[in-house]
Design a protein around this nucleic acid. Structure first.
Lengths: 393, 393
DNA sequence: CCGATTTAAATCGGGATGCAAAATAACTCC
DNA sequence: GGAGTTATTTTGCATCCCGATTTAAATCGG
């Protein structure tokens, strides 16, 4: 635990107010006070500082007025969309997706660069990313110098803080300093984050979990990602490590043991020679056509996933589990066995606890999630004048 | 996140100081300052309040003096052992273990009551517990009114805060209000906690994890317990639920799927008719005698555990995993396959991360862990005079 | 034996924070 | 236009932490 001092106190409350404004659209000071349980005085002081720093503005849309129309009207406050801009990047196996967003996470420009990332060396990847970011920023009508942060998300295990990638299906050379390479090329603060954490943030900010401060997300893509939102914060492992599900071993041991990633990853589902370079759409077509062999493979994947999810629920007891990822395009072929094995595996007292939600998140939401990660850090970081209040003004 | 105010600030720092004193024996104010990074002024103020409240005392044992012998000598501060007393209780399938401890967790009296808990109704259990607590308190030369809190630990899933038991192998009727029953009988603040969390606290305070603020503990007893220490705090699920491992399902699904609890719980290991009522010692004897069938069962349990532990490491990335529980008496018969399957299942980048430690914790340490849970709450709670500093004194 | 030196702890003064109460602002209603 | 109502700001106070200074309690050295 960190030691507490007045500065930390202010930082906490400031963040609380800013986050309340973000979540609850244009909102009046009184209501911020009611929601955060801060006194009106404190809310006034903090909002004054935020206005001063240009992070929020007065905006009267959505001014619903308290029930009765009497009394002094509320002044509605909202994030100042142009307080800062960030870029979120998603690094997937075969493409790079960039989005530029404003301070509230609205997408101003999006861009997809097809590229066989897996085959590239780290410096080349950094070049592509930097290129994508530049173009995206240009498309948004901005200049690079206006971008306050870039967040790059990729599948695998990432150490938060250092930005070191410990494992990833898309990076060949884990020792090459990706973080430094990108920072050097763009000259912008860069955050490396696991893609599962990015899409988890996206669901929390923009998606199916806006009202949930506790949930678990399972991303079923090429690999299997895991994000845990705990008490409104991304849960990270001991060293700030992101979590992953692909390395979970299924099976009682011995010969039958298999990595979940090998059971339910797309590498397996696309292993059939007919499917090379075809992707999920083709798999789905074959399934619909009644390909029994493929159906069995998909069913096995669904079953394993159901069990893995039940295990997660048993561990974290989340009220909601969100499933995302391109593999979900297989629809009921995957989901039916998933649900069935989940139901069989979940212990009775927890059976009604967790609600499973499927979300067909598009590419752009993943990148937007990365942007949200960047914005989240901006919200928390000491801005212009976090410090002393300026009396002489 | 809770809103920050001066009171919270002080509570945090106060707890920090108290915890530092607890961990680092008799310690001087300067050193507390160095360790916590609080200013000498603040440390002085807080320790003055703590002395005033009688939670700490001046004690000169262990006064090592800074290297040079010059200058004003340090005043060593330590927990005041008689600031409060608590009782920790462990409810196991066939016995109740109680310990009374002083404010620093030293055991003053211990007591084991054999009893087939499983066969009893909740009110009878509460009677036994209350009886055990009373006798234990008497043995320690104390009166019930001196006991500030009682913590009761039991296997299963417990909701922290409400004290509701959601699942337990030792309680027949989960709807009967155990917490209220015990509070009513003793008239003392009572905390219900999972036994896994209790032994996790015990390891953190007194055992193999005194220097570790991040670790995972697996308790292999009748059931399979799990405790996660994250950043110096017990990690709890979404509703403050304790975690459990017994419900983890091993296997890719279908017919081969099995609960880990059914694979590695003692119910399974003792299933052989020859072993009824004999316990682990007899199992061990048979294993040593070369009973192949039994060996296979134990090996299968070890293998499954190894995989489960690997999965936990993949999830939480803890630097240390501690194994405890009576089943460990099986020794290498269990541990060799466990280690083997762990090594096979752990992903390469994490292979060197976690160190597995076996601890042969006795019954009393489990109960002492419950006491530590109670003490932990006392340390954090507002004591006598948490509030305003009294100037006129 | 007594002053210089050294280290620890307490005290003083300043700056920041949050809160409650009072004051002010900006409306609606009559 | 005045009364009533609700939102926001101002005022005054109590608390907290911190840096600098002062006091305390030893040792060292002559």
């Amino acid at each position: 635990m960190k030691t507490a001092d007045p500065e930390l106190m202010r930082a906490i409350n400031r963040f609380l107010v800013l986050d309340t404004i973000r979540r609850h659209g244009p909102i009046a000071r009184v209501e911020i006070g009611a929601r955060t349980e801060l006194s009106a005085t404190t809310v006034s002081a903090i909002t004054a500082a935020l206005l001063d720093d240009g992070l929020i503005t007065v905006r009267h849309e959505g001014d619903i007025r308290s029930q009765s129309l009497r009394g002094r009207p509320r002044v509605m406050l909202a994030l100042h969309p142009e307080a800062a801009w960030v870029v979120g990047v998603r690094l997937a196996g075969d493409r790079i997706v960039c989005v530029a967003t404003n301070f509230q996470g609205d997408v101003l420009a999006g861009l997809t660069l097809p590229a066989r990332i897996t085959a590239l060396a780290t410096p080349d990847i950094a070049d592509l990313v930097a290129d994508g970011v530049r173009r995206c920023v240009g498309d948004a009508g901005l200049g690079l110098e206006q971008i306050k942060a870039v967040a790059l998300s990729l599948p695998g295990i990432v150490e938060h803080g250092s930005g070191q990638v410990l494992a990833s299906s898309v990076l060949g050379d884990l020792d090459a300093p990706l973080h430094e390479a990108i920072t050097a090329r763009l000259g912008i603060d860069t955050i490396i984050e696991s893609d599962a954490n990015a899409i988890t943030m996206a669901q929390h900010w923009f998606g199916q979990a806006r009202r949930h401060d506790d949930f678990v997300l399972v991303a079923i893509e090429e690999g299997l990602g895991l994000g845990v939102m705990h008490n409104g914060q991304l849960f990270r492992g001991a060293h700030g490590l992101s979590l992953t599900l692909g390395d979970m071993v299924m099976g009682p041991g011995g010969d039958t043991a298999m990595r979940l990633g090998d059971l339910a990853g797309q590498g397996t589902l696309l292993a059939d020679p007919r499917l090379h370079e075809q992707g999920m759409a083709q798999v789905h077509a074959l399934l619909e056509a009644g390909d029994d062999e493929l159906r069995a493979v998909v069913a096995r994947a669904g079953t394993a996933l159901g069990i893995a999810i039940a295990n997660l629920v048993a561990l974290f007891a989340p009220p909601r589990v969100i499933l995302v990822g391109s593999t979900l395009a297989l629809g009921e072929h995957l989901l039916a066995p998933l649900r069935e094995s989940f139901a069989a595996a979940i212990p009775a007292p927890l059976a009604t606890l967790a609600e499973i939600v499927i979300d067909d998140a598009g590419d752009q939401l993943w990148a937007r999630g990365a942007a949200a990660v960047a914005l989240g850090e901006l919200y928390g970081s000491p801005w212009g004048t976090t410090g002393p209040a300026r009396h002489g003004q």
